[in-house]
């Protein structure tokens, strides 16, 4: 028994299909519990009022946006080193989920920021980093779509992911440096973690786990779709060859 046996598409499909219902149900349950608990059964913040409750969407989405990229990085590495197709397809499958998470984080951040900071957008280091992350996702997905040959696309996007990771980390530091340089002691930046009181933390953790399971289920589901699409392509190619022979 080794983890590499899931590199076999058939084995991957069989196993992922077995665990997916459980994943869907538990993630839906956790998200529902977490969000309902968070929205209706936590006290309003004395400073921020009820707007603070968007945190239950914002923080898990932001967390998963970064973790999705991290997962793509690992999957890309596995593809580059061990050439397992499932791994490349999983990286491809995770990207759209990741970009949606990034968008949710950005949108909820803007909605939160509007009443709190009086502006939809500020060039706060965190926000800026997420914008850069969004661009990385966009480029990665566009590159996948632009290349016809599946192996070439997998190779190129994998290298883009590796190089992009280095530059994303670098951007994070650059952005931090740049903004502190602009406004000393960046007054708009809230360190969210420290502001979270105990009353908020439990539903927040539940939401985070729910989002995580949801992400895993999505990736399993989409990877399965990609595997099937690849198989259909191979079958069609075979049919065309049969006709012309």
């Amino acid at each position: 028994m080794s983890i590499w046996e899931y590199a076999n598409p058939r084995k991957f499909l069989r196993t992922s299909e077995r665990v997916m219902p459980a994943l869907w149900v538990s993630s839906a349950l956790l998200m529902a519990v977490g969000l309902v608990w968070g929205f209706f059964f936590t006290p309003d913040d004395f400073r921020q009022g009820s707007t603070v409750k968007i945190i239950f969407l914002h923080v898990p989405a932001a967390l998963m946006a970064i973790n999705a990229w991290f997962m793509m990085l690992v999957a890309s590495l596995i593809w580059v080193i061990r050439r397992h197709h499932v791994s490349a397809l999983a990286a491809r499958a995770a990207a759209p989920v990741g970009i949606v998470m990034t968008l949710i984080a950005l949108a909820t951040g803007a909605i939160w920021g509007q009443p709190m900071w009086g502006t939809w957008w500020a060039w706060d280091p965190r926000l800026t980093s997420f914008l850069v992350l969004f661009l990385f996702y966009l480029g990665y997905i566009a590159l996948w779509e632009a290349i016809d040959d599946p192996d070439t696309a997998a190779d190129l996007t994998a290298i883009l992911c590796l190089v992009g990771t280095v530059f994303a980390v670098l951007s994070r530091y650059a952005v931090n440096f740049w903004n502190q340089g602009l406004h000393q002691g960046a007054s708009l930046s809230l360190d969210k973690k420290e502001n979270v009181a105990d009353a908020f933390s439990n539903p927040l953790y539940i939401c985070m786990i729910g989002f995580g399971l949801f992400f895993i289920a999505m990736v399993f589901y989409r990877t399965g779709t990609e595997i099937r699409a690849r198989r259909i392509k191979a079958l069609l190619a075979r049919e065309r060859q049969g006709e012309s022979a």
Binding site: A234, A237, R238, Q241, G242, S244, A245
Partner: peptide, 12 residues
């Protein structure tokens, strides 16, 4: 490893 793909139509 792709049975039946017979990529050379002219082989026959």
């Amino acid at each position: 490893f792709w049975p039946g793909t017979g990529v050379f139509p002219d082989c026959h």
